[in-house]
């Protein structure tokens, strides 16, 4: 129960931060890609640097979580699908002006077209589920 509340809190914090910093704004993403405004790229770079420092601190403290268990980093595989998926994702990012996180922020902000993007994402995930059925390697 407390854990669930923790996740809810983390989500609220994330959604609030995305929305307050303009990450869920179509123009911000568009202007980052055209090179007219790098605010969003700077935001992402800052987040990465802060994340690296934070993970270094956790490591220096023994790599344990609050309950004293080892922290397990979620490792992602690198294969040709990383590239193919990355390309499709990049195109989708530019087309919709959103990503799977910021589209949720758009929904919270009442952007109806964000909800449309979200439904598209569900459908895209469903296509993947169908394909994974026949190709277990996917």
């Amino acid at each position: 129960m407390i854990r669930s509340f923790g996740y809810l809190l983390a989500g609220i914090f994330f959604g609030f931060a995305l929305s307050r910093s303009g990450a869920s704004d179509y123009n911000f993403i568009h202007y980052m890609f055209t090179g007219e405004n790098f605010k969003l790229a700077l935001l992402m770079a800052t987040a990465i640097v802060i994340g690296v420092i934070g993970m270094m601190i956790l490591k220096a403290l023994g790599n344990k979580d609050v309950h004293g268990r080892d922290i397990k980093i979620n490792r992602k595989p690198l294969n040709k699908y990383t590239v193919i998926g990355g390309i499709l994702f990049g195109i989708g990012w530019a087309v919709s002006g959103a990503c799977p996180g910021t589209v949720l922020a758009q929904i919270g902000e009442g952007k109806v077209l964000g909800l449309v993007t979200f439904l598209g994402m569900l459908f895209g995930t469903y296509i993947y589920a169908l394909m994974a059925e026949n190709k277990p390697l996917l």
Partner: peptide, 27 residues
């Protein structure tokens, strides 16, 4: 237009095993 963008994002994220949060920030 936006539905199509979403389909690419949803499918692409699963193929690549993550999105802007899981890959670009966390990864």
């Amino acid at each position: 237009w936006f539905f199509a963008g979403g389909v690419l994002l949803g499918f692409g994220a699963r193929l690549a095993n993550g999105c802007t949060s899981g890959h670009s920030i966390h990864g």
